[in-house]
């Protein structure tokens, strides 16, 4: 029953994540708006083309008209980005490629999430020594007091241990004598 529920929940989550759009896929008929988000304006403003304001930048005007021309010619997104890279250099591309060393930047979230889930699994497996002090709402009022009790509890057992140990040593000494 338990694993069935987990499997259903997992399947629902994965399906929903799978339908999440992936903008890095090459698009056959790109729009200007889409391309503006994948290219940096080369005027030195450190903004992508979509964010560079026209009243202050002639470079963005030129780049947009170049893109409009390429779209009109029916070029694919990949071809357009390639032509822009050839003209302006690698720095014009706003989205790192999914090849070579750049793959590391794309893989990180998956690896990070995987490590996180691994830790969660280990924590779920380790369920031996569990204490419960109360819900956070309850602890808001007397959190530290409860905590003090716990600390006292520990100290009490430490003291008991030391007393017992002292007794043991005394007995050993007596036995030795």
């Amino acid at each position: 029953m338990k694993s069935k529920h987990i499997a259903i929940l997992g399947a629902v989550i994965l399906t929903m994540l799978a339908i999440y759009p992936n903008p890095i896929y090459a698009s056959e008929s790109p729009t200007l708006e889409e391309l503006e988000r994948d290219l940096y304006c080369m005027c030195g403003c450190v903004k992508i083309l979509a964010f560079c304001e026209m009243s202050k930048c002639s470079v963005s005007v030129r780049m947009r008209s170049e893109l409009a021309e390429m779209i009109e010619k029916g070029l694919s997104k990949e071809e357009i980005l390639d032509l822009m890279r050839k003209k302006y250099g690698d720095e014009v591309i706003a989205t790192p490629p999914t090849t070579g060393f750049s793959l590391a930047v794309w893989l990180y979230p998956v690896i990070g999430g995987g490590i996180g889930l691994g830790i969660l699994y280990l924590l779920l497996k380790r369920r031996e020594e569990v204490v419960w002090h109360g819900e956070p709402e309850e602890l808001l009022e007397r959190g530290e007091e409860i905590f003090e009790e716990h600390v006292d509890y520990e100290e009490k057992y430490d003291r008991l241990f030391e007393e017992e140990f002292e007794k043991f040593r005394r007995r050993k000494r007596e036995e030795g004598a």
Partner: peptide
């Protein structure tokens, strides 16, 4: 150089 823009 590579750039990491909003799409990423």
């Amino acid at each position: 150089k590579v750039r990491v823009g909003p799409t990423y």
